[in-house]
Write a protein that binds this DNA or RNA. Sequence first.
DNA 1: TTGATACTTAACTCTATGCTTAACTTTTCA
DNA 2: TGAAAAGTTAAGCATAGAGTTAAGTATCAA
Lengths: 112, 112
Amino acid sequence: MLNFSQPLDLMFQALADPSRRVMVERLSRGPASVSELAKPLSMSLPAVYQHLQVLEASGLVCTEKTGRVRTCRLEAKALRSAEQWISERRALWERRLDKLGDILTESDGKPD
Amino acid sequence: MLNFSQPLDLMFQALADPSRRVMVERLSRGPASVSELAKPLSMSLPAVYQHLQVLEASGLVCTEKTGRVRTCRLEAKALRSAEQWISERRALWERRLDKLGDILTESDGKPD
DNA sequence: TTGATACTTAACTCTATGCTTAACTTTTCA
DNA sequence: TGAAAAGTTAAGCATAGAGTTAAGTATCAA
């Protein structure tokens, strides 16, 4: 399928990489510079930088450069929308399971 | 970074593809066969099948074959754990923002 | 003004992903 | 029994993704 570059694609794609999740994890405890984000990761700075660009493109992280330091911070709104997509599907499915359970209980074990 | 194949990697990776999200969406409304999942997607059945395997490997979907039909259903527990990861990070970050807001309000505009 | 710091860009390699078509393998049922 | 239905496997191809090194650029501090 062609890449529609929809927000959810980019967000889930961004979250799929463990290094990027480490970066998000770090940023959930407060803003950080590029080098700070790189510190716990065993890879070159350009690699970290590329991950950062993926996170920024997804909207999960926004950055701002002041002097020679780029400061990165989490974007709660984007996190919320990814969370919400999952939540809605799960709710739909669980509601269905509940209803099914009720029917089974009411009818004392009769199948669907 | 090496592929640790951690559950979250696989789940977010699985959700990153729009075709797979269409499949999850369909399954949130109830179980379905492989061909039913394939119906709205403009790709070959083997392609759909491969997507299904990605979803199954991630734990988001489980399947069971009866006769010649494979029935697929959502796994609420897995959805919950992906949702929770995001939720926890967001909560941490938003709590931080709130505290910061409080400090700014109490001190009447003094910086951090 | 010069060396160090903190990114940033470019070019390249290697692997993983997302398809495809073709060829099987069950099951089902007329 | 034998064709149709539903799924499965295999092989191959094209593109995207994750990493590298090397070479910039822009700030800062002395």
